[in-house]
């Protein structure tokens, strides 16, 4: 199927939960066109679903792009951190823009509400972690309002059912990547990330708490800045909601957010997967707008 005029051609590498949910979001976008959906097995559920939706599919890994370099301009890598290291090399050689969904720590860390414009200059951007996408916008605001935070800690609750085998075996990488992201985006001196899996039925929504210790909490300014940030994130993550506004309790600031997913490929409780995909699509759309305006096609 030929890409429609003005749409950015994207390929999705990885046909698991993340890749399949990304596909739904790309198909909804006015700015993006999925020109190749790549897995490892043509009989897999993800590939079969994509093919049924009329999307070109392949089981050829990154070589599918290498063999047909014009197939896409941008690649979402939804495989694993280890695979991404190999893919990144090939895609860099091909001159593709890469949005990395894995905790590989290779590319520029991106939280669209904070640094989207800057990230559009980088050929490889990393989407940090699901917990990072939910909490870093708040951590960033806490740092910005108070100059410097001594310590920021984030705690995420996700439904057990939304945590697949890869998430479970990579908890340490999740924690370490999230902690690095908190420091990078808030300027705090120390950070800590905690993840709780909750098996309750019906499954719980993803929610996250950001705690901070600062010299003098400025609740008035913080509340206004948090409201503004929640609105900014809400533009690309419709289910992002503030549930406990900035509160000082026991000598610490606490802020809580909830993320309900759009229920595209995964149920709405899997807000953790939804938010990182929404963020990635926001970056890809940023590229589409930039390319569109350069070519004068007015993708908007």
């Amino acid at each position: 199927m030929a890409p429609r005029e003005g749409k950015l051609k994207v390929a999705i590498l990885g046909s698991g939960n993340i890749g399949s949910d990304l596909l739904s979001k790309v198909l909804r976008s006015d700015l993006l066109e999925c020109t190749l959906f790549i897995g490892r097995n043509l009989a897999s559920r993800g590939i079969a679903r994509a093919a049924a939706m009329g999307v070109p599919v392949s089981d050829g890994s990154v070589e599918a792009i290498e063999n047909d370099p014009d197939v896409c301009d941008l690649v979402f890598d939804a495989t694993s951190a280890l695979s991404h290291i190999r893919h990144a090399e090939v895609l860099e050689r091909l001159g593709k823009t890469v949005i990395d969904m894995t905790p590989s720590n290779l590319g520029r860390m991106c939280i669209p509400a904070v640094n989207l414009q800057e990230c559009l200059e980088y050929p490889n951007v990393n989407m940090v972690t699901c917990g990072g996408q939910a909490t870093i916008p708040i951590a960033h605001v806490i740092g910005a309002v108070h100059g410097e935070a001594e310590y920021i800690e984030v705690v995420s609750q996700i439904a057990s059912r939304s945590a697949g085998p890869a998430t479970r075996v990579n908890l340490d990488e999740y924690i370490e990547t999230t902690e690095r992201g908190i420091i990078a985006f808030s300027g705090c001196r120390r950070s800590k990330a905690i993840l709780n899996l909750n098996p309750a039925q019906p499954p719980v929504d993803m929610q996250a708490t950001v705690y901070a210790r600062v010299d003098e909490p400025d609740l008035e300014r913080l509340t206004a800045a948090v409201d503004e940030m929640v609105e900014k994130v809400g533009v690309y993550v419709p289910g992002y909601e503030l549930i406990v506004p900035p509160t000082v309790e026991n000598g610490r600031i606490a802020v809580m957010v909830r993320v309900r997913g759009r229920g595209d490929y995964l149920p709405s409780y899997a807000g953790n997967l939804d938010i990182i995909n929404c963020a990635a699509v926001a970056v890809a759309e940023g590229h589409a707008r930039m390319t569109g305006s350069v070519q004068g096609e007015g993708a908007r």
């Binding site: 705690v155 709780n196 719980v204």
Partner: peptide, 8 residues
């Protein structure tokens, strides 16, 4: 159904 570690 809150579990251990969910003090927040």
């Amino acid at each position: 159904g809150i579990v251990a570690g969910q003090e927040d």
